[in-house]
Design a protein around this nucleic acid. Structure first.
Lengths: 171, 171
DNA sequence: TCAAAATAGGACCATGCGAGTCCTATTTGG
DNA sequence: CCAAATAGGACTCGCATGGTCCTATTTTGA
């Protein structure tokens, strides 16, 4: 379903929560604040610490805080931290392309890689600070969205109706 | 890993294969041509038939063919057919938003939905005919990609280095 | 110096879902 | 009537995701 893992979702929520304060916050505090079970909060933050996205402070009055400003941490980075390299298809992830059991002449593979890069680029654009507010801050992404929509009309004018109908249905 | 399922990948490969001919092709033929095991080919095509993406012809000399021209079938459509509605996070998929176990004030949810729509819009843009050739046909997507890249420079000039470095690393 | 409050780092389980196979109808053409 | 196809499920198997828990280690303050 083109889905990110639950833990990654938690990572975004937790990073967003951490972006609200400068001082370290403990696992217990974050669990209370977000509704995520404490052991899970701990697990996610330990991973993010290893990846250098948050920094930890042990001992009394310790806790976690962001290693960088919130607008310097992208969604893509969080996904990579929790789940490993982003790759939409399985065969697109191997550098040599040898892992693909399908026939070698499947030209589909190269194009998947491009799709991959595009999705990744979009997610690189979105920072934790973009996710925090109730306001609409996702300007970069929406700009890409609009560009795609614009293109749709130009390139395939006769399909516009059917496609926008689908966008409406699942949007 | 932000991954689509293997079966969806098969669906794209099979639809691409079907786009090469007008006449129906049998499961056995497609299995040979693509390297996908025959029972799996059958399973995927049965689903695509139910979804109205391909049409089937029973009996001798029967088989499957695309229900529409290849440029009228989007990657997004195939994903939806095999895996159900596209939604990047779990809580984004429930229409009422009640399924999210996290606290109600998590402003993250609304923003996930926007991300969702953007990714979906990008995938709506890509058709089966775009996936077939070895040439670079993915103009719409690459345009979105370029728009995002452009925006990166403008909005956050000081982060350009770090971000492009990441794109290099995982691209 | 000790106790309390934190994180670090795993081990561990379970259960759901993806992937794949196979069996039995049903349709269709010769 | 037979052969060649698809239709529609049922079924199993494997494994990654998710969650929990236990035992160090670090830090602070009384």
């Amino acid at each position: 379903m083109l889905r990110i893992s639950k833990l990654t979702d938690y990572a975004v929520v937790l990073a967003t929560a951490l972006s609200e304060t400068e001082s370290p916050r403990s696992v217990a505090q974050l669990a209370l604040g977000t509704g995520i079970p404490a052991p899970t909060v701990s697990k996610v933050l330990k991973t993010l610490t290893r990846e250098g996205i948050v920094v930890s402070q042990r001992g009394k009055f310790g806790g976690y805080r962001l290693a960088r400003p919130a607008d310097a941490i992208s969604i893509a980075e969080l996904i990579v931290a929790i789940e490993g390299p982003i790759s939409v298809t399985e065969c697109a992830e191997s550098a040599d392309g040898a892992a693909c059991a399908l026939h070698d002449d499947c030209g589909v593979r190269a194009n998947w890689k491009k799709i991959n890069r595009a999705v990744e680029a979009a997610l690189e654009e979105i920072s934790i600070s973009d996710m925090s507010g109730p306001e609409e801050k996702l300007v970069p992404l929406l700009r890409s969205f609009r560009a795609a929509e614009e293109n749709r009309k130009v390139v395939n004018a006769d399909l516009t109706d059917a496609l926008t109908e689908e966008v409406e249905r699942y949007g």
